[in-house]
Design a protein around this nucleic acid. Structure first.
Lengths: 241, 241
DNA sequence: CTAATAGTGTCTATTAGACAGTATGTT
DNA sequence: AACATACTGTCTAATAGACACTATTAG
């Protein structure tokens, strides 16, 4: 019921011809990507399993400001680019990644967050299976290490928010599977849940609930120094909502 | 462990002096507010209760583009303004509201969303108790009506997202209470839950779970044409996470 | 055999769903 | 009395937590 005739009438077209964008505040917009993946850190003991850890992709800044510091991969939004387009371009140029699961996280707009000028940044969280992707130009860092690093701009805070988002969504969505390899054991999957939630889970309960989403590949692990484990795959297309 | 001496060294200061913001894409940023409240629509029958509805604040656009159309209250982010500052200013100027609960919703960045120029908009959702606030310059519309209206820009889509956010958070936070009057009956509260979730709830179960968060005022409703109801208030400061 | 992990069975506690049944105002 | 809503009780189903117990491999 829009009586106010959309399809821009003559007066509106005239207004748009006169419009001077330059009069408005010179604020730029960037997109930053928090790319999260799970790495395996080989165990010290032949009996033990490889421990996993949450990792995030960082790039070393080659220009001022924060030259030499690590930062999240990011870049300016072009005039004819959507936020998602910018994200894709940034991921491709700065990390070599394409076609990975991403969702918008939060927009950071404090006035002094960039020393150059006023820049508002829209942060995205992306999840990847490290084993299926190769990275160029960026480097994986464990979140433990990142906590002790001072990243450029407000990027430490962005990572904080990303981890909160993961914790918040893990129990009612299937987002974790974006970070898992094609095939995995239930113990490996459980460890990832534990890393994100920051607490131990009960194996029996975990198997019960997660079991419905998994499909047995028929394969087993071998040479693990203890009882071998069934290998599973994710049954359905991930549920992200 | 930031070896790269923050506190901008001489070279970095030099870089910043030379920096020309004008070279970058002329994109503007706006903030739009989806202000949600619960209205009471008086019943037709003396025996029946007033039915409630979800309402959203809209303003009539006085300038091009979309002159004469309704839109969400919004405005440009100033060069020295955080997103939250802009939100406060916009709410105050266009609706007369201040000190209301707000959270960032989503940033909309499609290229053609504004005919004037490239404008990225950061949308916030705000929740108010209609009975405690008076509005100036804006007007309440029921969501049913809004579904049949064509709002300016992508504002219909923003409202869609806002309602999704409410549905998503209502069961694990106490956000509803931001929309409730100081005192209310459990039936009224249940109706608001039902409006947001779009389905009927079982009274017994609802009372059980919500009861813990409420405190009896000792008062009762009167002249309602049927059994009177206890009147409650919210016990604790709202949990928003 | 032992260390280390895999996997099952079962009891209990908590919570949600269903629904009948009782209570109490106004006209 | 009858209408409309308020409120309680209780049975059942589903789910999560706890934990003991059994199974299986490499060395």
């Amino acid at each position: 019921m829009n009586g106010t005739n959309r399809m821009a009438d003559e007066k509106e077209r005239e207004f748009l011809r006169q419009y001077q964008p330059e009069e408005y505040a010179p604020i730029s917009i960037t997109v930053d990507a928090i790319v999260v993946g799970v790495a395996k850190d080989t165990a010290d003991n032949y009996r033990k399993l490889d421990r996993q850890s949450l990792n995030i992709l960082l790039v070393k800044r080659e220009h001022y400001p924060y030259k030499g510091c690590y930062s999240l991969p990011g870049g300016f939004v072009g005039e004819k680019e959507t936020l998602e387009d910018t994200l894709k371009r940034v991921l491709s140029d700065k990390t070599g990644l394409s076609d990975i699961y991403s969702e918008q996280l939060y927009t950071f707009g404090s006035v002094e967050r960039d020393p150059r000028m006023r820049i508002v940044s829209c942060a995205y969280i992306s999840l990847v299976d490290i084993s299926r992707t190769s990275i160029t130009g960026a480097q994986w860092f464990g979140i433990e290490d990142i906590c002790n690093m001072e990243l450029a701009f407000d990027h430490n805070q962005m990572i904080e928010e990303a981890l909160k988002r993961l914790r918040g969504k893990i129990n009612y969505t299937d987002i974790v599977f974006h970070m898992m390899p094609a095939e995995f054991t239930i113990s490996e999957l459980q460890e990832v849940y534990e890393l994100i939630l920051g607490k131990k889970l009960l194996p029996a309960a975990f198997r019960r609930t997660i079991g419905e989403k998994l499909e047995d590949t028929g394969k087993m692990t071998s040479n693990v120094g203890h009882r071998p484990s069934r290998i599973f795959r994710y049954k359905e297309p991930p549920q992200d909502r």
